[in-house]
Amino acid sequence: MKKHPLMKLVLVIALGLIVLPMAVVLLWSVTRRWPWPLLLPESYTLRTVRELLTGSASLPKLLLSSIGLALTVAVLGTIIAMMTARATELHEFRGKTLVRHGAFLPLLVPGTVFAMGIQLTLIRLGLSDTIAGVILVHLIAAVPYCITIMTDMTAAVGNKLEQQAMVLGAAPARAFFEVTLPGLLPGVLSSMSMGFILSYSQYFSTLIIGGGRVKTMALVLVPYIQSGDRALASVYSVAFVASALLVFFVFEGLLHALQKRGDRI
């Protein structure tokens, strides 16, 4: 395919919008002093890195809880989305359109407003200040996106192969896992990535519902930005982005491994 020159320009701009700020953040993360109008910092330090690795918030514990939480949301969100997508795409029932559009309602309400509203309900349910509560709120943020991805994917894959499998003697669940899931796999991974990043980057809802008991990267990172310690905020940002990317790479690798395995057997 011949690349359009305009396409190239768009690509360069997009890259600039991601790479340049990232470079600045990287630089800031090891900056001691960077007075105006110098192009580069005046002096560098590893204070921030030391703080990140050995500081008050233990990094491994923080990563573990953040990634664990986000993965849980990613998996649950994708399962919910998959079931919703199958219901609306493959079955006929009353109120189908309502379900389809209703799934996007959480997107209409600003996150802050939503978090404060739902907190009352969660307190009543005894889920406030618990991990379960946080997972629930993150799910509400993530599921609409997961549903969008899974709906398109389910519509594309359809249930024709599943019908064929059942006609050939496969029980419904077996038919799904044998012939439909392999086709849905790329969508499942996209949906999980989406769910992961939405949960991973939640700040306000985690703060309100978690009540400070549920610690995540975002929860530690944001106060540094607000307090103005740019160097520390930057080093946490780098750790935040790097850890998220790492998880994406694992997802990507998993997809390839699964597809390869599917190729062999």
Binding site: K160, Q163, G169, A171, P172, V179, G262, D263
Partner: peptide, 20 residues
Amino acid sequence: LPIHKRGTVVVFQDMRLFPH
């Protein structure tokens, strides 16, 4: 009887071979 227990096998117009 559910589909998979009938023993009525369909060959569809679009073949529906499992691509994976």
